Simulated assay, not measured.
Amino acid sequence: MKLHPEISAKHLAWIEKQQMFFVGTAPLDAEGHVNLSPKGGDSFRVLSPLQVAYLDYTGSGAETIAHLRENGRIVIMFCAFEGPPQIFRLHGKGTAHLHGSPEFEELSKHFPENPGARSIVVVDVERVADSCGYAVPFYDFKGHRNGLDKWAEKKGEDGVKAYQAENNERSIDGLPSIDHS
């Protein structure tokens, strides 16, 4: 493993070629559940050498938002499924800016519009590290899925908000996620 002072231009070029990444968070309670979420699509941006953001889509749970509200700890991991082996991790403190907030509106200019967008997560990066990735298998990228986009378009803005109110207010451990009151 090698530590880096920041996300370099070389790192940025490599990140931009990756089709997916993973987000890890955990509650403070030792009995709580660690969460690991795969992410894809045109949803990740490097805002500066020590700040990144990703577009968070509506899902069946809202663990990441709950964990960030509680303690802010987050790690983002990229791994090469094509080309030379490589794993790249960004550890830091994150904040979820919910759809409709002034921060979301300002940050949304960095991303394509998406009807399923729930928040934009901004991470102030405290640790930049890479490692070999020799054991990561090769996979062929065939394309992005559009099921979430179709689902959100069919539900409409009010339907997506209703879904979030029903399914995203608390984490599986009972932590508050999205307040719809």
Rank of each mutant, 00 (worst) to 15 (best):
G41V: 07
K17G: 15
F111H: 06
D140E: 15
V52R: 00
G32H: 06
Q18A: 11
A30C: 13
N71E: 07
A129V: 01
R127Y: 03
V122E: 05
S37L: 13
H67M: 08
E82K: 13
G94A: 04
D130C: 05
E113R: 09
I87A: 13
L50P: 14
M77P: 07
G40R: 01
G100Y: 08
F111Y: 05
E31N: 15
C132M: 10
A80K: 10
S131N: 12
T95A: 07
L68D: 13
A117Q: 07
I76K: 00
E126D: 15
Y54D: 10
K39C: 14
I120N: 01
Q86E: 11
F138W: 11
R69I: 02
H33R: 09
S60E: 13
G32L: 14
S48F: 08
V122D: 04
A30Q: 10
F81E: 02
V125F: 03
E106S: 06
I87G: 14
R89Y: 03
D140H: 09
G72Q: 14
V128W: 03
F104M: 09
Q51H: 06
I87D: 10
S60T: 13
A66C: 14
L50N: 12
R89K: 05
V136D: 02
P49H: 13
E82R: 13
E31G: 14
V23R: 03
F141A: 06
P85C: 04
C79R: 06
A53G: 10
G41I: 05
E103K: 07
P112S: 09
D130G: 12
E63W: 07
T95S: 07
F81S: 10
E106K: 10
A117N: 09
A135W: 13
E126K: 04
H67K: 03
S37G: 08
Q18F: 02
K109D: 05
K109P: 06
V125K: 00
V34H: 03
A30L: 15
E103I: 00
G100P: 09
E82Q: 10
S101C: 04
P84Q: 10
K109A: 14
F44L: 15
V122C: 08
K109G: 11
G24F: 00
M20R: 07
V125G: 08
V75E: 08
L36N: 15
E105C: 00
H110Q: 07
V125D: 10
R89M: 04
E63D: 15
A30M: 09
F22K: 01
S37K: 08
F111D: 15
E103Q: 12
I87R: 15
Y134D: 11
F104T: 03
V46K: 02
R89N: 05
H67V: 01
F138S: 15
E113H: 06
P102V: 05
I74V: 13
F88D: 07
P38A: 00
Q86F: 06
P49Y: 05
M77V: 12
A66W: 00
P38R: 05
R73E: 10
R127C: 07
V136M: 11
V23F: 02
D56Y: 08
M20L: 12
A66K: 03
H67G: 06
G92Y: 02
A13R: 11
S108F: 01
Q86K: 10
A53T: 11
F44P: 02
V128M: 04
Y54A: 10
A80N: 15
F22P: 07
Y134M: 07
G100K: 02
L55C: 01
G116Y: 00
A66I: 13
